[in-house]
C-alpha cells in the first residue's frame, strides 16, 4: 500500500517539519522507496522471537545518588540559556503555545 502525498503531509505535520509542495513530491517518492527497503522485515517468521531493544543484555537500572552535583560538569543556568534563540531571566522564551486568539486566553 503506497503512501500518498496526503499521508506524507500528515507525517510532516506530526514530525513538525514544514515541507514546500516541491519537497512534498520528493519526500513522497523517497518515503515509498524507503518503506520498500524495509519491507522484508514483515516477511519474516518471528513467532516466539524475543525482541532486542538494546545491544547490552542484562541491563539493570543505573541509579544516581539524590544529591546536587556540584562538580564542574553540571550545567549552570546562564550556560544552558546561552545558545537559546530567546530567553528571559532564568527561562527559555517561546511564542504562544495555545494560539493568539483572544478567546483562548
Amino acid at each position: 500500500m503506497a503512501l500518498t502525498k496526503q499521508d506524507v503531509a500528515g507525517i510532516a505535520d506530526y514530525a513538525r517539519i514544514a515541507l514546500t509542495p516541491e519537497e512534498l513530491d520528493e519526500m513522497t517518492t523517497y518515503m515509498n522507496n524507503a518503506v520498500d527497503l524495509v519491507e522484508p522485515i514483515r516477511e519474516y517468521d518471528l513467532e516466539g522471537v524475543e525482541p532486542t531493544f538494546h545491544p547490552i543484555g542484562d541491563l539493570s537500572n543505573v541509579m544516581g545518588e539524590d544529591v546536587v552535583d556540584d562538580s564542574e560538569r553540571h550545567l549552570p543556568i546562564d550556560v544552558a540559556l546561552s545558545n537559546a534563540g530567546a530567553s528571559r531571566d532564568r527561562y527559555f522564551r517561546v511564542p504562544s503555545i495555545l494560539g493568539t486568539d483572544e478567546g483562548d486566553r
Binding site: I11, Y14, I17, M31, V38, R42, Y44, L46
Partner: peptide, 25 residues
C-alpha cells in the same frame, strides 16, 4: 526523521519497529 516518524506512528509501529527488534535478536 520523516521515515522514523512514519514507522513509529500508531498502527505502523507493530508492522515494522517491533519485528525489526526481533530480527535484531
Amino acid at each position: 526523521q520523516m521515515l522514523g516518524a512514519y514507522l513509529l506512528s500508531s498502527g505502523v509501529y507493530d508492522k515494522y519497529y517491533y519485528p525489526a527488534q526481533q530480527v535484531r535478536t
